[in-house]
Design a protein around this nucleic acid. Structure first.
Lengths: 210, 210
DNA sequence: AGACTTGTTGGCACTGCGCCAACAAGAGGG
DNA sequence: CCCTCTTGTTGGCGCAGTGCCAACAAGTCT
């Protein structure tokens, strides 16, 4: 499992060391919930003294937050669909694209994603909530842009953020439970996103206010 | 905040004592996340020795699980709509009822609910996951029954469980963030549930298999 | 009132965390 | 090539929180 500790005491440039510890910790947090991963274990895995982890991240929570931040933003940021070449594309096709994009980008990390997010312990921490919200909001903006809707309307974003809750739950049903196939998950998310768009547009035109 | 410790050492029948500790712990867990609540604090609040909490619940996780179980099942079990008197009611009206029922039953506990559950809604502890799944599945069954659909089709339940993810997220946008009004939340959930029903029915008739 | 049941207590041993003073790896000047 | 200075790194200390258990005593039964 662990090699005979590659060269203890070896000096590394701070960035590298930081990154190395972060990688090790990331794997551990992806495999086991927050409380069951000890700082000692992170240090041991990284071949480093316990104190060094605290030195770089201050706090166990600190290193967790950094990992969480990456895990949340990573699927959002990677290969977003270029918004330029979508001018003539009809709404229904855009919805299809949004769903496919989401399922594709989530699939590889899905397993570990839930473990990191689950975090039985610190789930409610306001800082954690902030990071999660940030990720959800960014994803909502991307989605609205891809759909050609106004990403600045706060109620629209709220609706899409809420939709995000279903998107995650659907992935869960697909990847974890296996209760849905990818095709079923896709169909469900597609149909529902169409309904969300319809509701958003009704809200926007019908009541007219921001 | 805390009274001058009502009668220490007083003997109570196990059920009562257990219930009392549970109530105190429940309030604490509703106000602050798991890690930040100590067994000592639970004991102090209940006016009881630390050891007694362990005696009744074995384990800090043990008492948390019991509270979680209640928090998850409570909104599901309370005043479910009597399924008998729904024979002539059209689907759209049933959907309205389902959404109202959900929002009504969740509203009072919403604030503490999210603290106990945590932000993401997905916990990693297998036991925690089991409890959450159980609650979601029960809610999905109730919803399907209320809608007059087959609650035994596993894909239907999966779809409604996924919808539950959006329902929770929507409540979050309404109660916590304030980004949606109750009316907007209602409209959104109603329209989306209609779409989910449509997808379920298409899946059920179109591909026909269980 | 005495003895017995059992709800209750408080301290012990252990684990994991954050901190910090001392250490030494490696670069740079003489 | 050695000495020095910077700073990445170490390991142990004190503390907090947990689970356990043997002693204790409240209340009951005879």
């Amino acid at each position: 499992m662990s090699l005979p500790d590659v060269e203890r005491g070896r000096r590394l440039p701070p960035d590298e060391r930081r990154e190395q510890i972060l990688r090790c910790a990331s794997e551990l947090f992806a495999a086991r919930p927050y409380t069951e991963v000890s700082v000692s274990e992170i240090a041991r895995t990284a071949g480093v003294a316990r104190g060094l982890v605290n030195h770089y991240f201050g706090d166990k929570r600190g290193i967790y937050l950094e990992i969480l931040r990456r895990a949340v933003l990573l699927p959002v940021l990677e290969d977003a669909v270029p918004a330029g070449q979508l001018d003539g594309v009809p709404l229904e096709r855009r919805v299809e694209l949004a769903v496919s994009w989401f399922l594709d980008s989530v699939e590889p990390h899905a397993a570990s994603y839930f473990t990191i997010l689950g975090a039985g312990g610190v789930a409610e921490d306001p800082e954690v909530a902030r990071i999660l919200d940030e990720g959800d909001d960014l994803a909502a903006r991307r989605t609205l842009e891809l759909l050609g809707l106004d990403a600045e309307r706060s109620t629209s974003r709220a609706a899409v953020r809420a939709y995000g809750g279903m998107a995650k739950a659907t992935v869960r049903e697909w990847v974890r439970t296996g209760a849905l196939t990818r095709e079923q998950a896709h169909a469900l998310l597609r149909d529902v996103l169409m309904a969300v768009v319809a509701t958003i547009e009704a809200e926007a035109s019908g009541h007219g206010s921001r």
